[in-house]
């Protein structure tokens, strides 16, 4: 499978879909881990374990999708983890006090979009570096969440709301269905809309993009809004799954999202990236967590293994791209 992709890669005519090449860096460890683990532990390849891995990966996948769009423009969104907590608290509060699930989700998504828009406007119009702006909103959102909750968790009793995080539809967990839909929409935006192409253009060469008539500011702003909305969806799934909203939730989750994106072949320098890769990247990280427990590996090694997998995948990916570039030249 990997090889046929590589071949396609070299025939520019067929490079229509954007997931055509960057995702190999996540696909290789994914396949290797799947094969190795299915031999190593009899429980690994059971339906229930696979579904449980996917359910655990869901929040990271959705956040990673948002992060990928931001990374494609050469930016970063550090506010994701805090925003997750804020959205979770807002929707938990609304669903508990009004009982309306629709209202809770709507409010959550509006909060996510608003914070995303704030990030986007400041980054694109005031020329504040994304790292600094989203670092500020990271603190602002976390602080706001603590002010709202006064540090005590909000328990969710509404069982239909909890279904979003814990239920299934036709045997597939709802969070998994949600992340698949989010990925499909993300792929659609990236491959079939002008926005997708503009985002990549802005990321690879902002000046060239501006000179060719692309509204660089507006397109840069969009990615932060997309990120905010994705985080909002992830936040709703997160609190629905746990049945409680904590002010301290989601700390350092933005780094998990960066890891998933980078593992999936999205370049932190911008201009390149994919959706399928991010999905697989997040699943790889979830599989490592699962394997640590299944194989009874000492926990002290978990972060080292994750770090090593990301590093190797990225090195291999960069090498592969360099070789491909040489051949084209």
């Amino acid at each position: 499978m990997a090889q046929s992709k590589e071949n396609k890669d070299l025939t520019p005519k067929r490079r229509k879909f954007h997931f055509d090449y960057p995702w190999i860096s996540a696909a290789v460890p994914l396949v290797v881990l799947m094969v190795a683990l299915s031999f190593a532990h009899p429980m690994f390849l059971t339906t229930s374990n696979i579904l449980s891995i996917l359910r655990q990966a869901a929040v990271y996948v959705i956040m990673g999708l948002g992060m990928s769009f931001v990374l494609m423009t050469g930016g970063i969104d550090l506010s994701q983890g805090s925003l997750l907590a804020l959205v979770g608290v807002v929707s938990a509060y609304i669903v508990e006090n009004s009982g309306s699930i629709f209202l809770a989700i709507l409010a959550g998504i509006l909060v996510g979009a608003a914070i995303g828009a704030a990030n986007g406007v400041v980054v694109s119009c005031l020329k504040i570096p994304p790292f600094i702006m989203t670092l500020s909103t990271m603190y602002l959102c976390r602080g706001l969440t603590l002010v709202i909750t006064q540090a005590s968790p909000i328990a969710i009793t509404n069982s239909s709301f909890k279904w979003i995080g814990g239920g299934d539809l036709l045997g597939i967990p709802v969070p998994v269905i949600i992340f698949i839909i989010a990925a499909v929409i993300g792929q659609f935006i990236l491959s079939y809309t002008a926005t997708g192409r503009y985002i990549l253009a802005v990321g690879s060469n902002r000046e060239a993009a501006r000179l060719s008539g692309i509204k660089t500011r507006w397109n840069e702003c969009k990615v932060y809004i997309i990120s905010g909305i994705m985080v909002a969806i992830a936040g709703v799934v997160y609190v629905a799954r746990l049945g409680a909203a904590q002010a301290t939730a989601g700390q350092s989750y933005e780094m998990e999202a960066v890891a998933a994106s980078v593992l999936g072949g999205t370049s932190v320098l911008g201009g390149e990236g994919g959706i399928i890769g991010t999905v697989m990247g997040a699943i790889v990280v979830a599989i490592i967590r699962n394997a640590i427990v299944l194989l009874d590996v000492s926990t002290y090694y978990q972060q080292m293994i994750t770090g090593a997998v990301i590093l190797i995948a990225v090195i291999v990916d960069v090498q592969r791209k360099a070789r491909a570039a040489k051949k084209v030249n």
Binding site: M43, N49, S52, R241, V293, L294
Partner: peptide, 16 residues
Amino acid sequence: GDQGTAMGIAENLLTA
């Protein structure tokens, strides 16, 4: 201290 992480670990333990 993260509820979500604890939940994931517990799920893995229940499988293992």
